[in-house]
């Protein structure tokens, strides 16, 4: 499965405030990209793309506020930095959110409304196969953990995939921004990370 991103690919950051950072770094490494954990605003200048991992979106938001990352990340995304958010990361990339907790904010970037914990509690968490637009080959095994879904998308947002059980949108792309409600980093299948690294290379 290992492919090489080539010398033209700048380092890809993984927002390392909380969540499954190590799995994203491993997936990026598997597709040949240099991966760096990002905890400080100044580190945003050294990367050509940013992954926002799964975790607890309230915790990631609180820490991003406390360590002065909200505005710098918004500014970089607004200026065209490619970003890929999974689960909590999808919430952080959404322009609008329902079922957030007291004043919860996102980085934004993708013109969509997401619902937090939409699939239910942990006993409802599941894995299933999903066909994704733009991903060749067999379906992906998608792992949904207390996952959000997308309620509405704006005109510029391309829907990449739907969950078959609920008919809900669970994967989207808007320009260089990618988001999934599920966790590709929890399986050995690195096709979505390859797609993101391709986007990073095109944008650099």
């Amino acid at each position: 499965m290992t492919q090489h991103a080539g010398p033209a690919c700048p380092p890809v950051g993984v927002l390392a405030l909380q969540g499954d950072v190590a799995e994203h770094i491993a997936a990026l490494t598997a597709v040949g990209a240099a991966a760096v954990p990002v905890r400080r605003p100044e580190q945003l200048d050294e990367i050509g793309g940013l992954i926002i991992p799964g975790g607890e979106s309230t915790t990631i938001w609180k820490l991003a506020v406390a360590f002065d990352l909200m505005e710098p990340v918004r500014k970089r995304i607004g200026a065209g930095l490619p970003a890929f958010g999974c689960c909590a990361g999808m919430i952080m990339l959404a322009d609008r959110m329902v079922d957030g907790t007291g004043g919860q904010e996102t980085f934004g970037g993708i013109d969509m409304t997401v619902r937090r914990n939409a699939f239910g509690r942990q006993v409802d968490s599941f894995e299933s196969d999903i066909e994704l637009r733009g991903i060749a080959g067999p379906p992906l095994r998608a792992v949904f953990i207390r996952a959000p879904w997308v309620e509405r998308t704006g005109p510029g947002v391309e829907v990449l995939g739907m969950d078959a059980g609920t008919d809900r949108i669970v994967a989207v792309r808007q320009g260089p921004l990618l988001a999934t409600a599920f966790h590709p980093e929890l399986t050995p299948d690195v096709r979505l990370h390859q797609l993101f690294v391709d986007i990073v290379r095109e944008q650099s």
Binding site: Q18, G54, F126, V143
Partner: peptide, 27 residues
């Protein structure tokens, strides 16, 4: 569990249970 699934949605797999803990990391 993944092989048995053959595409169907499955709750309570080891990957879903362990994955939940992965999301708590650093917390």
């Amino acid at each position: 569990e993944a092989a048995r699934g053959a595409g169907a949605a499955q709750t309570g797999t080891a990957r879903v249970k362990r994955g939940m803990a992965e999301m708590l990391k650093g917390g």
